[in-house]
């Protein structure tokens, strides 16, 4: 099972905000696992979708070199549940950034309706204890970003497109060289 809780990016403004989409499908087993007779999207997985959106927004600021993790969920409120067939939009906005992490606020929409609001705290893991820790294989990470179409929409605040970091392209090329005879 893939731990992808967003389907694609629709908007990405470096260091500021992002908007992503999640389509809820009855084909996803967790809907039934969570509530057998009345399937709905578990709210913690909507929070995870916001966290992935915000984590990538924050990670991009270091060309995806920083180890960014969701450290804490502040207030989280949900007015309605999301059900199979719903198309969810996640909006995440960075409110404050420090070397150790960032504060963000996220909102979940279904069409024009607000389903929930969440406050998130991200941590950037620094220090010698994390030096050897890779959260992702770089080439697989880039494949995920391409799948989510992040670079198709990512822009700097002045409107210029965001380029794929050289170290990720190098890792992708190296992986392709290994797998292509």
């Amino acid at each position: 099972m893939r731990w992808f809780w967003i389907d694609r990016f629709e908007e990405f403004v470096v260091g500021q905000s992002a908007r992503t989409v999640k389509n809820v499908s009855l084909g996803e087993e967790h809907l039934d696992d969570y509530n057998v007779t009345w399937p709905y999207m578990p709210p913690p997985l909507m929070i995870e979708g916001l966290a992935q959106s915000g984590g990538l927004l924050l990670g991009q600021m270091s060309d995806f070199k920083a180890r960014v993790v969701l450290a804490k969920v502040g207030r989280a409120s949900f007015d309605e549940l999301a059900r199979p067939g719903d198309r969810l939009t996640y909006e995440i906005r960075l409110l404050s950034q420090q070397p150790d992490g960032a504060i963000a606020e996220g909102t979940i929409y279904r069409n024009q309706d607000t389903l929930g609001r969440v406050e998130l705290v991200f941590a950037s893991l620094h220090g010698p204890e994390f030096e050897a820790v890779e959260l992702f294989q770089p080439h697989e990470f880039l494949r995920m970003l391409r799948s989510m179409r992040l670079f198709e929409v990512a822009r700097h605040p002045d409107g210029t497109p965001v380029k794929i970091p050289a170290h990720l392209l190098a890792a992708e090329n190296a992986a392709l060289a290994v797998t292509t005879p």
Partner: peptide
């Protein structure tokens, strides 16, 4: 915890 101070400061 340490991460809470980021939140508190904000």
């Amino acid at each position: 915890e340490s991460i809470d101070f980021l939140d508190i400061v904000y």
